[in-house]
Write a protein that binds this DNA or RNA. Sequence first.
DNA 1: ACAGGATATTCGCATATACGCATCCACTTA
DNA 2: TAAGTGGATGCGTATATGCGAATATCCTGT
Lengths: 110, 110
Amino acid sequence: MPDRVSELHAELCKTLGSAIRIEILNALRGGEKTVGELSAALRVRQPNVSQHLAVLRQRGVVTTRKEGANIYYGVSNPKITQACELMKQVLVEQLKEGVELTRLTGPARR
Amino acid sequence: MPDRVSELHAELCKTLGSAIRIEILNALRGGEKTVGELSAALRVRQPNVSQHLAVLRQRGVVTTRKEGANIYYGVSNPKITQACELMKQVLVEQLKEGVELTRLTGPARR
DNA sequence: ACAGGATATTCGCATATACGCATCCACTTA
DNA sequence: TAAGTGGATGCGTATATGCGAATATCCTGT
């Protein structure tokens, strides 16, 4: 039975488990951006971007700053970007060694 | 529209988005373990553990090694553990500064 | 106060995920 | 080869997630 901390930990990780949210975080590496800018940059409809931003907000992954009619979003903790980067490195290394083989051959054969 | 790499990246991150899988990875920090050992350590039913291990396998997060009647599981890439650790640090920092406030007050007030 | 741009929220639906239970498969030992 | 153990898989169901469409809210300028 998983404990409370593991559940929070998993919730936080789950936040990165969406291609659009990953791209939002990538886009925010260059600094704060408004919802409209993100929507345009990722070519994703605004309500959809807002939904993903809401998820990121709930987990405390991004911060908001209001300026006039716009709302600027930014990454709340650089460690999130670091973790994200590490995962990407893992992915790259996997692709290099063709993990496909493992994926397709399934579980340990006996 | 998210590109292919972001989708793979997200898929990989999604793998960490389960409390049980987080605990499996934590348990594997101490070295390889069999399904039975994991099941006992986490107090989770064996089929359920197997299901989660299957997910971790498909994403190439864990490796398997057969020894006799047992199958030993291990983390495939230490960077995964590192990323996991970074996320936990983020979580701890969040708790320290009581992110609850932000979570409850919702989006940017105007 | 009104119009319009920027962002958030609600709803409905389609799809994905987690779990328990039962069962099946592989390996070992007798 | 039969029995037992370790592990994987299939099925049914409950719950969660993602998306589009429509709508609501807030802000600025007039």
